[in-house]
Amino acid sequence: MDWDKIRLFYEVAEAGNFTRAGNKLGVNQSSVSRQISALEQDLKVPLFHRHPRGLILTEHGEVLFKAAQDMHLRLERARQRLSDTSERPAGELKVTATVGIGGIWLAQRITEFLDLYPEVHIQLILTPDELDLAMREADIAIRLRRPAQPDLIQRRLFTIHYHAYAAHSYIEKFGEPQAVGDLDHHRIISLGGEQPSFILELHQLATWGRPPKDPRLGRLVVNDTLALRRAIETGAGVGMAPDYAMSNNPHVKQVLRDIEMPTLDSYLVFPEEVRSVARLQVFREFLAAKAQSWAY
């Protein structure tokens, strides 16, 4: 198979029509259409269903697209390794993390990195989903559990300690809980929504000291960690939060200090093929240094 035709096919499949693919490649629409038809004749199978609203891959087209996508990724990785291993840190670096650790811990430190490496451009993707690093959805991730994929390099970053917090304004109104049983008489706020189960399990205030079928009724459940942090510090109730989000917050106080609280280990995760990329190397070293200098 002619790689030029396969590359053209890949771009057409990505674009969904001949015109957009042609514009990207600098080729007119009729030429793209003719080359795709020639490829279909060479392979003796149809690759697209042609509709007025666009192109849809046939079953044969799906098979070829998967192979072309794999080839495209391999070539891109090879190009990146050839160009990046000996260069100074420069270019785009896609970083993914959860909303909490990315929006609070990392965001508080990213300015220093940008000052140190002015030619590196960070794209920070905050999501509870674990993006596919092998498929280049991101270059490096900060994750709150060990990755299951065996082909990913993982480096432990730091341990995150969770504690119960309440605002000083809340304590002035309702008092401070001294024991788990006191939570029956307090407003409980917690994280909910479409979060990984191991994250939801950290928010145990509704069930501590109560029968599993008779939890405390939460007064507020939010699906965003930043909103939960804001609700705690403005006096909405007692809630669980990581120490990195609350330890320097003058508006809140850690409560129930005598009770053992949950922890999570965080990890830096990245594919083997980008470990020698200069911008990833310096970012990894920067985060490791920041993790060592911070007490949790």
Rank of each mutant, 00 (worst) to 15 (best):
I153S: 03
V12I: 07
Q281A: 13
P52F: 05
G181M: 04
D132A: 08
W105Q: 08
R284P: 13
G192C: 01
R79V: 08
Q204L: 09
D224H: 03
T98C: 14
S83F: 14
Y165P: 00
E285I: 12
V12P: 03
P242Y: 03
D84C: 13
V45C: 10
Y170E: 07
G181V: 11
A15C: 09
P147G: 06
Y296I: 10
W3S: 14
A107S: 11
K173Q: 12
D151Q: 11
D151K: 02
S83C: 08
H168L: 07
T19V: 09
I104R: 05
N249V: 00
P215Y: 00
V120A: 05
H51D: 14
D132R: 03
V27E: 06
R145H: 11
H186F: 04
V12G: 09
E172T: 03
F283N: 14
R7L: 06
T58N: 13
G218C: 12
R219D: 13
A78H: 11
A227G: 05
R109H: 07
N17R: 05
T98P: 07
H60V: 13
V63N: 06
H163G: 13
R34H: 03
H60N: 15
D182F: 03
G237C: 02
Q149L: 15
R146W: 13
G175H: 09
P215M: 02
G218E: 13
V222G: 03
Y170D: 02
L126W: 07
D4P: 08
Q204G: 11
S293R: 10
L152C: 03
V27I: 04
I56E: 12
Q281D: 15
S293H: 13
L133D: 07
D70Y: 09
F48A: 02
